[in-house]
Amino acid sequence: MTSPELAPPSDQTERRRETADEEIVVPLRHYGRTTLAVFAVLLLLGIGYGLSTNPYIAWDVVGQYFVNGSILRGLGVTLQMTVLAMAIGLVLATVLAIMRLSESRVLNAIASAYVFFFRGIPMIVLLIFVGNLGLFVKEIVIGIPFTDIVFYQVSMQKVLTPFIASVIGLVLVASAYMSEIVRGGLLAVNRGQYQASKALGLNGGQTLRFVVLPQALRVIIPPLGNELVNTLKATALVSVIAGGDLLTIAQSISGVNYKVIEMLIVASIWYLLVIALWSIAQYFIERKTAER
C-alpha cells in the first residue's frame, strides 16, 4: 500500500502549482520605451501648439481657401494625373518586365536601357524637358518615311499642353520604377508553376495571365501602393511647367494674396488627406488579395 507521502500528485495539485508559478512571474518593465513614448507625445503636442498659436500663420486664410473652387479644381487635376500615370505606367511596366525576363537579348537590352535611363534622370529635369519639347520638335507628322506622303500632321504646341506633358513625364518615370516591382513579383512565383501550366497545355500568354500574374499580385500590390503615393506627391513637381495641379493653383493664389505659407499648408493638408484615404483602401485591397 502506497503511503500518502509517496502518492503521485493529482491533476488538481499540478494545476495549482502551475497557477502559483504564473503568479510569481513579474512582467519586465520597459522604462526606456515608456519615456520615449511620453517624449514623442509631448514633442508632437508642442509642435502642434506652436503652429496653432503662431501669430505669423493666418489660420483663417487656411480655412477660407481649403474648399476654394480653384483649389478643388487643382486637386481634381492632381488626381487625374495620378490615375492616368499609374494606369498607363502599369501597362507599360508590365510590358517592360516581360521584356526584361525574355530570352531575347535585344528585348532585354531595350527594356534595361529604358529602366536605367528614366530612373536615372531627375523627374523635375524630365518634366522641364518634356514641357519644352515644342522648342525643337515643331510638328508631329505621320506618313511614309522618305516620301512626301503624309497621313496626319499637327503642330506640337497644339498637342503638347501642360497637362499632357505632365502626364507623359509622370508615366515615363513611374513605368520605369513599376517595371522593377512587376518583375520582382513575377520572379517570386515558383518556376514549377510554369512547368505545371505547360503540362496542362497552356501557352506562354495563358500561363502569364491565368497562373503567374494572379500569384504575383500578392507581392506586387504593397510596393505598387507605395508607388502610387510617390506618384501623387510627384505631381507637385509639374508646377515647374504650370501643369494646373494642386500646388500650381496654390502658388498662383499665393502670388495674389501673398499668403505663401498658408497656401502651402492648404495644399499639404489635401495631399495628406488623399494619401490617408488611399492607405485605408490599400489595407483592404491587400487583405482581400491575401485571402485568395
Rank of each mutant, 00 (worst) to 15 (best):
F136M: 08
T82W: 00
V137S: 07
S175P: 07
K138Y: 01
M81V: 14
G143E: 05
M178W: 10
L96Y: 04
A176V: 03
S112W: 15
I121Q: 01
V106C: 06
M99G: 10
I140W: 02
S155H: 03
P162I: 04
A87E: 09
E139K: 14
N68W: 09
G89M: 10
F116M: 11
K138G: 04
F136L: 10
I164F: 10
M123H: 00
V171A: 12
A165T: 13
A93E: 00
L79C: 09
G76L: 09
A97L: 03
A165F: 11
M81A: 12
A165P: 11
V171S: 10
Y152I: 06
M86S: 03
V130S: 06
A93P: 09
I121M: 08
S179E: 06
G169Q: 06
M99K: 00
Q80I: 04
I128C: 10
G169A: 02
L127Q: 04
R105V: 07
I164T: 13
I181L: 09
A87I: 13
I110R: 11
Q153W: 03
G120V: 05
A176D: 04
G69V: 13
F116W: 15
S179I: 14
G169K: 03
S104F: 07
V77Q: 03
S166A: 01
V171R: 15
T94Q: 01
I164L: 12
V95C: 04
G74E: 10
G74L: 11
V67S: 11
G184V: 00
E139M: 12
K158Q: 13
I144C: 02
N108K: 09
P122G: 15
A97Q: 06
M86A: 06
I124P: 08
Y114R: 13
